[in-house]
Design a protein around this nucleic acid. Structure first.
Lengths: 67, 67
DNA sequence: CTGAAATGTCAAGCTTGCTTTCCATAGCGT
DNA sequence: ACGCTATGGAAAGCAAGCTTGACATTTCAG
């Protein structure tokens, strides 16, 4: 699963740390998502979508092969 | 987080077991989601949305309180 | 070039999502 | 009542998401 987090964050001129604080997660979590080390929980996906004013589908690109 | 899984499944006249098979998860997973024992992973949420021809936001209702 | 800020990344530990197995309960046709 | 089918739900175990803490690397202003 790919995502547009880094792009969206930079568009808004935010640091990973600031975005993390806004979402109440750790900076490492944001970095890990941007770099594809793992996928977000659905809760966090909703938080991100709400924060950016987009839908989950706008931010995360589902790819068939779950791996 | 609430969801409309049971409603959607029944609309389509499916058993939990059939839906589970279509999504390649266990019957217990479907039952647990319908009864709110836990939230789906984002992968499974995407699978469900695709299966029902809806968006994740159509199926899952995000509630602030992460509990 | 130098230093500070931002990001990358790892490790250990806890929590949550999902599996399999198993048993209990509910509903329904006969 | 009986038996069958669908669903509910618990337990144990593994995988994935997230945390804190620490350290390496990149980036960029001066």
């Amino acid at each position: 699963m790919k995502n547009r987090l880094e792009e969206l964050r930079k568009q808004r001129g935010l640091r990973q740390e600031e975005l993390a604080a806004a979402l109440e997660v750790s900076r490492q979590t944001i970095g890990s998502l941007e770099n594809g080390r793992y996928n977000p929980s659905i809760q966090l996906a909703f938080k991100l979508a709400k924060y950016f004013g987009l839908t989950i589908e706008d931010i995360f690109i589902y790819e068939e092969a779950p791996k």
